[in-house]
């Protein structure tokens, strides 16, 4: 573990990313105390520029506090990012494991199925799913999970393909372990590092997807999200730049942080690769 942290620390960007990410999580956790009440409350006159009337980041077209919206929006964005990633991992890992471990017909079937999803533009599919199931937090999470599992399945399959012919797997088979036990107990733990790296990037793209959906008005209308803030601010951007700029920054920083952390994780989990990269630099 200490080794891991040392390698992670070596990547300065990753540390900065982790710091930002911790701040965002803190902001989300403390939002109800920092900004008590609902982020939808009309707390000031509409279109107050940042700094006026106790509005740190200004107010929007109904006089709602943009800062409160960002803080409360962080909760939803992180929640959506995390939950949809977990859901996508469940689908992707199980399908990838089946394909990679069983091989043969099962592999072919699962991979064709995965390709089917990969050939459909993911954002269009997400819009379609949300529109069909009417916008709500559940349909948004579902849609994001549905469009983001194929890469997981492919990565997991590739790992499984290479691991299943290793000696320790053969040893486990000889010992008479069930297939499920082998998959879960022997192969999966050894395939974890690419999955962890991938999932940190998936959280980032899930946040982006959710924001894009909210921006288009397909988010849950009862929840304040970053995408909603930008969508509501976009049309008045020449009148009130702060309405879209600050939530935009929030998304930018969070996604950047997640990407940096992902890179750091990749370095930390693949020491050989990191050293090569370090040597080249």
């Amino acid at each position: 573990m200490r080794d891991f942290w040392r390698r992670f620390r070596r990547n300065k960007g990753a540390v900065v990313g982790l710091l930002i990410l911790v701040l965002v999580i803190l902001l989300a956790a403390t939002a109800p105390w920092l900004f008590p009440g609902s982020p939808w409350d009309m707390a000031a006159a509409p279109f107050m520029p940042p700094g006026e009337m106790d509005m740190l980041l200004g107010s929007d077209s109904l006089g709602r506090d943009v800062a409160a919206g960002i803080a409360h929006g962080a909760r939803i964005s992180l929640l959506v990012g995390a939950v949809s990633t977990v859901a996508a991992l469940c689908i992707g890992v199980s399908l990838g494991a089946i394909a990679g471990y069983l091989g043969g017909v099962a592999d072919d079937a699962v991979m064709r199925f995965t390709e089917f999803f990969q050939t459909i533009p993911s954002f269009v599919l997400a819009i379609l799913l949300v529109a069909i199931f009417t916008p709500s937090i559940i349909s948004v999470v579902f849609a994001i999970a549905i469009v983001s599992w194929p890469p997981v399945a492919r990565v997991v399959r590739a790992e499984f393909l290479s691991l299943r012919s290793r000696e320790f797997v053969q040893a486990a088979e000889v010992l008479g372990k069930t297939r499920l036990a082998i998959v879960l107990g022997d192969i999966l733990p050894n395939a974890l590092s690419p999955i962890i790296v991938l999932s940190s990037l998936m959280v980032a793209s899930a946040i982006l997807l959710e924001s894009a959906l909210s921006f288009l008005g397909l988010g849950d209308p009862n929840l304040m999200t970053w995408g909603f803030l930008i969508g509501a601010g976009r049309s008045v951007i020449r009148l009130a730049w702060w309405m879209s700029v600050f939530p935009g920054l929030a998304i930018f920083l969070t996604v950047l942080a997640l990407n940096l952390v992902g890179e750091g994780l990749s370095d930390a989990l693949n020491p050989r690769l990191a050293r090569q990269r370090g040597g080249a630099a």
């Binding site: 609902s38 939808w40 409350d41 009309m42 077209s61 109904l62 008005g217 209308p221 509501a232 049309s235």
Partner: peptide, 15 residues
């Protein structure tokens, strides 16, 4: 959009 804003306003008024 304007109608969405109106709904949001009504939600706050009703609260």
């Amino acid at each position: 959009e304007i109608w969405t804003r109106l709904s949001e306003y009504l939600r706050q008024s009703m609260r």
